[in-house]
């Protein structure tokens, strides 16, 4: 029997089988300047990103991932994106979106998109961690203190409120944009409640359809 087509692109397969930039030594030995850790084993995805920074550029990035082939492949490809050509600046790296990663991977099956949104989040966490450690908290663009509502995909209450303020009034639309509640799903009712409250507060005459 010859190999049948994979559900994944060749790029995902290559990165899954021979992942680049995996942290293969102890974290203490590697001495990262910033560490980002998102997801949980209960959700089936968990990513840890370690960065080394020089002159506001990410000169090295290592990672560890618990997850499926697309989670492993997307973290690996992200590590290449960030470190190639001498490394991205911190502000460049901060703006990487799941779409950028998926494009680099040559696409993902639609039910796998949520697996790739953790990589960029873990990276931003790592950058925030670096800012914190280097005493530049003011540079953290994200409301780091906001409470995490969706633990699987690390979406905060602040994130949800910002989405609503940007005009997202529909739960499906919010999910499309943030992937919130697409993991274990335990937070869905809470997210809907936050949305309802925000919609009522800011869009009194618009009815929120859950």
């Amino acid at each position: 029997m010859e190999k049948m087509g994979w559900n994944y692109s060749d790029t995902v397969k290559d990165h899954f089988l021979k992942p680049h930039n995996v942290l293969s030594i102890e974290e203490s030995e590697y001495q990262p300047d910033g560490v980002g850790f998102v997801g949980s084993p209960a959700c089936g995805d968990m990513m840890k990103i370690f960065i080394k920074v020089k002159n506001d550029r990410i000169v090295d990035l290592k990672w560890q991932t618990f997850g499926c082939a697309s989670a492993i492949g997307s973290t690996s490809v992200l590590s290449d994106m960030v470190t190639e050509n001498g490394g991205m600046t911190l502000s460049e790296a901060y703006t990487i979106t799941p779409e950028d990663i998926i494009k680099k991977l040559g696409g993902l099956p639609s039910n796998k998109i949520h697996c790739s949104v953790l990589g960029d989040k873990a990276l931003r966490e790592a950058i925030n961690d670096y800012y914190k450690k280097s005493g530049r908290v003011d540079l953290i663009p994200h409301d780091k203190e906001s409470r995490v509502v969706c633990h699987c995909l690390n979406v905060t209450e602040h994130d949800i409120k910002m989405e609503v303020l940007e005009g997202v009034k529909d739960f499906d639309e919010l999910q499309k944009r943030t992937k919130a509640g697409t993991g274990c799903g335990k937070c869905v009712s809470e997210i809907k409640q936050i949305m309802t409250e925000m919609v009522e507060k800011y869009y009194k005459d618009t009815i929120y359809k859950g």
Binding site: F16, D45, C68, A69
Partner: peptide, 14 residues
């Protein structure tokens, strides 16, 4: 423990 089933399945498949 500590690893995910689809990754195991796909590597075994290969």
């Amino acid at each position: 423990d500590a690893i995910e089933g689809e990754s195991i399945l796909l590597r075994l498949d290969l």
